[in-house]
Amino acid sequence: MDKSTILRLLHSALSLGAANVKRRIVRFRQKADYERFLSEWSRFGNSAKLVRHLPSIHGFSLPIAQDLLASSACADIWVENDPLLTVHNTAFKSVSREKGIPWGVQEIKAPLAWSMTTGHRVKVGIIDTGVDFSHPDLKHSLGRGINLLSRGSLPHDDNGHGTHIAGTIAAANQVHGMIGVAPRATVYPVKAFDHNGSAFVSDIVLGIDWCVRNKMDIVNMSFGMKTRSKSLLTAVTNAYNAGVIIVASSGNDGKRKSIDYPARYPQTIAVGATNRLRRIAPFSNRGTFIDVYAPGDKILSSWLRGKYHEMSGTSMATSHVSGAIALLLAHRPGLSPAEIKAVVKRSMLPLRGTKAPRVAGELDVMQMLQTGDRR
Rank of each mutant, 00 (worst) to 15 (best):
M1S: 09
S4D: 14
S4G: 02
T5F: 00
S15H: 14
G17E: 14
N20L: 13
V21F: 01
V26W: 02
R27W: 01
F28G: 05
R29F: 15
K31V: 01
A32M: 05
Y34K: 01
Y34N: 06
L38Y: 09
A48R: 00
L50Y: 04
L50W: 00
H53M: 09
H53S: 12
L54T: 02
P55V: 03
L62K: 03
Q66M: 04
Q66G: 02
S71V: 05
E80A: 11
L84H: 03
V87Y: 06
N89S: 14
A91Q: 12
K93S: 14
S94I: 10
S96H: 11
R97D: 11
I101S: 06
P102W: 05
Q106M: 13
I108L: 13
A113N: 01
G125I: 08
G125F: 10
D128M: 04
D128S: 10
S134M: 11
L138C: 10
H140D: 13
S141L: 07
S141F: 08
N147C: 13
S150T: 05
S153W: 08
S153A: 15
H156E: 15
H156F: 13
N159I: 03
G162H: 01
G167T: 09
I169C: 07
N173M: 05
H176F: 14
A185T: 10
V187A: 07
Y188M: 08
V190L: 14
K191A: 07
F193R: 05
N196V: 04
N196Y: 13
G197T: 11
V201M: 05
I204P: 03
D217H: 15
D217A: 12
I218C: 06
I218R: 01
N220E: 14
N220V: 01
M221H: 02
S231Q: 08
T234A: 15
T234M: 14
T237A: 10
Y240G: 04
I245W: 03
V247Q: 05
A248V: 06
D253Q: 13
D260N: 10
Y261R: 04
Y261P: 00
T268L: 01
A270G: 12
A270V: 10
A270T: 08
L277V: 01
R278L: 12
A281D: 09
P282W: 12
F289D: 13
D291L: 06
Y293R: 04
A294H: 07
I299H: 00
I299M: 15
S301T: 07
W303I: 03
T314F: 05
S315W: 03
T318I: 02
T318P: 00
S322A: 15
L327G: 04
L328Y: 02
A330D: 12
P333A: 11
G334F: 11
L335H: 06
A338N: 07
K341Y: 07
T354Q: 14
A356D: 15
E362F: 00
